[in-house]
Design a protein around this nucleic acid. Structure first.
Lengths: 133, 133
DNA sequence: GCTTGACCTGGAGCGCGCTCCAGGTGGGAG
DNA sequence: CTCCCACCTGGAGCGCGCTCCAGGTCAAGC
């Protein structure tokens, strides 16, 4: 079968089993198959969807927005434009986030360079200045 | 005077006054000056330090690690190497973070492109597939 | 001198996103 | 058949980083 136990899914997606159950509880995962005994079986599609969730979570999309996305999915094909908009808005935020991070990275590197200089010739650079950049 | 009221600092750093008080409470800000009446007055150095804090927070440094950094600062000049190490470790994480974000951004863009294609010629691309990337 | 609004303190509360727990069940290995 | 471990449910708890509140004080402007 191309179906996966919770343990296999945790291995492949990095979500803990508790997180998978949580996502199902709040409606982020829907219609997860069960064995007759009630154990979850995840499909290939579930896995793909979980990879998308991981991508969105790792880029700081709030769960509420992911919920909105799955709600749109559930409503069918005529919500495609809205889903696209959700993703585009998010992509914009991710791009901004990357830019901001790069700026901050620059700042940190500057500070690192100052420390490097101070450690090489310790006397002339008053250490107090290091708190000032 | 080159000293600033809480309101001026919130305007210049983006921290709320509650956050400033919180940072002082937990020891992240130390020795903030007061007027005789007990109101805070922030110095130029405080501002510079707050900008560093903002940079570290925005790049996801946990507060516990920023506390370690200020503790090292407090301990004096012979902790410079350790402070440098803290910053270098962090810079590495920031770089990784940027790389990961770029990967995820690529994924999102791919998905956006799929939606774009589906919306332009709606028939041949089954909408269900959109959940699969 | 009075008003008014920014500011003070200590402490409680909150929102997010999980994470853990108790107590019980399913099902493959030996 | 038995064992044992992965899995189940509902619900409580947690860690982080603030954020808000009550009840009071300071000080600039009129």
């Amino acid at each position: 079968m191309d179906s996966y136990s919770p343990a296999e899914v945790t291995a492949r997606t990095g979500f803990t089993i508790d997180t998978l159950r949580y996502y199902e509880r709040i409606g982020l995962l829907r219609d997860v198959h069960r064995t007759t005994g009630g154990r979850r079986r995840f499909t290939e599609d579930d896995l793909r969807f979980l990879h998308l969730l991981r991508c969105l979570r790792d880029t700081e999309m709030p769960i509420a927005e992911m919920l909105r996305y799955v709600e749109l999915l559930r409503e069918g094909d005529d919500t495609q434009a809205e889903r696209l908009a959700v993703l585009q808005d998010h992509e914009t935020r991710v791009a901004e986030q990357i830019d901001r991070l790069r700026g901050h990275q620059e700042h940190i590197r500057t500070k690192i360079a100052l420390y490097g200089a101070a450690l090489e010739q310790p006397v002339p650079e008053p250490a107090e200045d290091l708190a000032r950049v």
